[in-house]
Amino acid sequence: MGTARYIARRLIFSACLILGVSVILFAMINAIGNPIEILLAERPGMTDEVIESVSRYYGLDGSVTDRYFTWLWAILRFDFGTSIIYNQPVSEMLVTYGLETLKIQIPAILIALVVSVLISVMAATRQYSRLDFGVIAGAMLGHSLPGFFIGILLILVFSYWLGILPSYGAYSTRNMLMNSTLIDGLWHMVLPVGMLVFFNTATLTLLMRSSLVEVLRQDFITAARASGLPERRVVFGHALRNAFIPVLTYLGILFGVMLGTAPVTETVFTWPGLGALYIMAIQQLDYPLIMGETMIITFMLVGATLLTDIAYVAIDPRIRLA
């Protein structure tokens, strides 16, 4: 079967890709130098013996290749070592912080998808109308606004002026809303999700609208109308599925990189997610954390790309896997 072979081949290719990323990542981190020296050498009263013993403790005394394979073997067992700054296992942190990021990213992408489909249909079926130009202008503006701006605006309106939504964190520290962890969590999600929805919707609408305008011009749309199908069926059944094909790539990437793409949102709303953690890890040179996150994001992106390619076959019969 062609599809099974295709997927097997892609899986092998993906494994090679991830391996390649791991080599480059390790080489780059190694090029920065011994983290122990960087972190401890400047401290007063530091002796060579201490540095040496701490280096040995972290396994930094071996050769580069030895250390790479030790690390590779460890990450294959989902062991990314211990964070230098937080003194916690990186794998645990990736899961805890990762889940918090997914909690705002997945709903944000899905909501944005639905909203942008509806807006795109309204705009594309009235091409060059005032509504259409309004949508294009709005989407362009939303696409180009700096991220923090909308976040701060949301906090100003809903937290400061109206006082109805929390401005930071994923949970209340003292009293849960309605004494329910679920409701309290959802309550905290509203603003960060809203901010992500805003940006995703802007970009997806730009893509989807132009794709839909293109498809609505096709002969088969006129032919579908000529066969008496109701307009709603023509647009949602015949046009949208074709219009979705070019959007799929972007959507795949959006899902693929979602673990690392919300640092601004997470920073503005003090959300305990991977994006903000990544920035912090880089600022503080927390090597195991940087490497762990990079590998997880690579893994997600490669997986999402593979899924996107498979989804193409499902949505467009002209594409055959080979």
Partner: peptide, 26 residues
């Protein structure tokens, strides 16, 4: 529009010039 759509395809059918692009590819 709705009344017209109900007549199209039932009481009158249309054949187009470009068979290559007049069928929905998906």
């Amino acid at each position: 529009d709705a009344a017209m759509a109900a007549i199209r395809g039932r009481a009158m059918g249309m054949i187009f010039q470009e068979p290559m692009t007049s069928l929905n590819p998906v």
